[in-house]
Design a protein around this nucleic acid. Sequence first.
DNA 1: AATGAATGAGAATTCATTCAT
DNA 2: CATGAATGAATTCTCATTCAT
Lengths: 199, 199, 199, 199
Amino acid sequence: MPTAAENKHLKQLRILDAATRLFLDRSVTDTAIDDVVKLAGVAKGTFYLYFRDKYDLLDQIVMRRTASLFTESCRTARERAEAEQLDAVEQIEFLTDEIIARLREDRKVTALIDKRFSACFSPQAMEAYPEMQTHIEYLTGLLTTDDCTVEDARKRLYVLADMIGCVCCDAILSARPYGIDELIPTCSRFWRRPSTTTS
Amino acid sequence: MPTAAENKHLKQLRILDAATRLFLDRSVTDTAIDDVVKLAGVAKGTFYLYFRDKYDLLDQIVMRRTASLFTESCRTARERAEAEQLDAVEQIEFLTDEIIARLREDRKVTALIDKRFSACFSPQAMEAYPEMQTHIEYLTGLLTTDDCTVEDARKRLYVLADMIGCVCCDAILSARPYGIDELIPTCSRFWRRPSTTTS
Amino acid sequence: MPTAAENKHLKQLRILDAATRLFLDRSVTDTAIDDVVKLAGVAKGTFYLYFRDKYDLLDQIVMRRTASLFTESCRTARERAEAEQLDAVEQIEFLTDEIIARLREDRKVTALIDKRFSACFSPQAMEAYPEMQTHIEYLTGLLTTDDCTVEDARKRLYVLADMIGCVCCDAILSARPYGIDELIPTCSRFWRRPSTTTS
Amino acid sequence: MPTAAENKHLKQLRILDAATRLFLDRSVTDTAIDDVVKLAGVAKGTFYLYFRDKYDLLDQIVMRRTASLFTESCRTARERAEAEQLDAVEQIEFLTDEIIARLREDRKVTALIDKRFSACFSPQAMEAYPEMQTHIEYLTGLLTTDDCTVEDARKRLYVLADMIGCVCCDAILSARPYGIDELIPTCSRFWRRPSTTTS
DNA sequence: AATGAATGAGAATTCATTCAT
DNA sequence: CATGAATGAATTCTCATTCAT
């Protein structure tokens, strides 16, 4: 027997799941709240009990998807790092590649995220997905050096994520002016300064 | 006496100008085509003579604004570069700062661009704004080295622009999770690898 | 063949007529804009071409009905006045009775007016119904004396109309605390000061 | 220890107070039952325990406010009457001015009353506010003469109140076609017949 | 090319009311 | 008595697009 509190979350979750499916299959604009509640099997009023409007719902979905995409990529990257003894920069590059791979694998999710990949760095996401914090702390640690404070490292990480999300959306979805294949090297090794790559 | 072609462009331009003003003052969603044609002083049918729909119009506006913002920043950066004998990386960093400064100065334009700063790199923009080509060629030249081909340099430039646009939109408009002041150093010196900044 | 300008008014009029019928038969709240446009045989968008919302429509209808009710009463009162050589106060009292008679005859119109009888004194009504002006000038003339300026007379007239409308709505529709029969003498001879009624 | 009856009234009163505040601050249409119960700190179901619907609630509030406004004005008028030895007509005129003064002082209450000032004359109001009865009896006495029965006097009083409420709402809230300043003389001396003021 | 009245499908959102707890 | 999550019908209003002039 589900408790009252569980029941409450149940309806909310059913709305989130239904909306995610519709947003991915069709698109956000082609999905009416009506469709969402019908698929979720709840009344229309129930929707407005849990979400302010369609865009509040969308924000929550984007937060969830980006957080899960990021944490999954982190897990894969970490396994590989341990197996192959990668150094800090190599680990970050591998993580970058991993995220890009997932985005290009699922164009629909990429379209849904629509340049808001860094949503998973928002305070709400941190709170809702404690695993995010663990990964970010680990990655921040990797980047921290004598002349790069913890705070600087965090910001770099955030900017990196935002950049990947933004660049990949265009590259994967429209391939203009560059397709994702052309940009992967530029992205993953972005901060390797041109002049320093040789020496 | 204006030629027929000029007259045609006159109406189109009046629509573009009216829409830009409305999109900036209110927002894209709060602006109806009706408002645009009223302010432009043309009939509704005329709008559909020149634009497919509201988003076609928006694309053209974003292209124009990003192109003018980019070219202006380039001009400023180049003057300074000549005056102060900056090296390649310094020039790019200065350009980055210049673009960011313009974005933060005009939040409304930043909101309008909405993470599509790299629109000025699109083939149509290049065609419509020949000055863009000149600047991009110059900048590409700056970044080209033995181990960075011309094509690689162009891509880096594109990714840099996309990154600035994307990161700055969030930082300037919502200041979450980081405000623009906190991110300027991270952005402008992004590709200076952490470990190499000291030595 | 109707001109374009006539056609424009035609649709507007059809909406006004349809709405009046529905507002009277059911009520304002029980009438949806949908019902109005269906009965008028126009598209929903056409409604919003001519009216801001349901209450703009209602205001226009109330203005029309009160103006026609007032002008008709005036005509009747004037005929009688000429036939029977009534003095000024008697004429006003007769007009009062005439208005009340029409209101009680048509409870539905009374309900529609809903205490806004003086709407026919609004500037817009004056403009739309030139006959209103003629009557008001005439009545004002009746009430003007050495110690009652033209302006004072106009105000008295306005207050009288407002009072009739307000008192009668309650008396006719709910009969609480007094029915219209009980209040007619009080209303029509309202400004005959109690002490002066005998002498 | 509060009795059960007092407790019952407590919740009812809290709803009435909360609704009054919201109805005054926003408006009746902009206030949802939801807002009312939230502010009152009771459950939604509780509302329906004490009130049939929003308009039942509104009626009770209007009754309360008009009754208190009327009784307060009466008290003030009576004190003044005793101090200054006013005659009957002067007393009524002073009361009229007093009511108008209070209405114009508090536009929000005037908007809430919305032409239903005579609600304080309803049987329910009389029952709920015994003080109303005392005042009305006194005022009726003032107006009763040889040729004006007690019943006539009561009706005149009622019509007067209704008129003030109706005229003042428009004059205070919209000032069209006349503002309250222009109408005060017309209202307070309304039943002084124009023709009799001179002779 | 230019117009602008007319369209009408479709969307979001509200809110009074119920009822199982 | 009291609760408050759930309901879902109903309603207003928008707006891109067309087409006869």
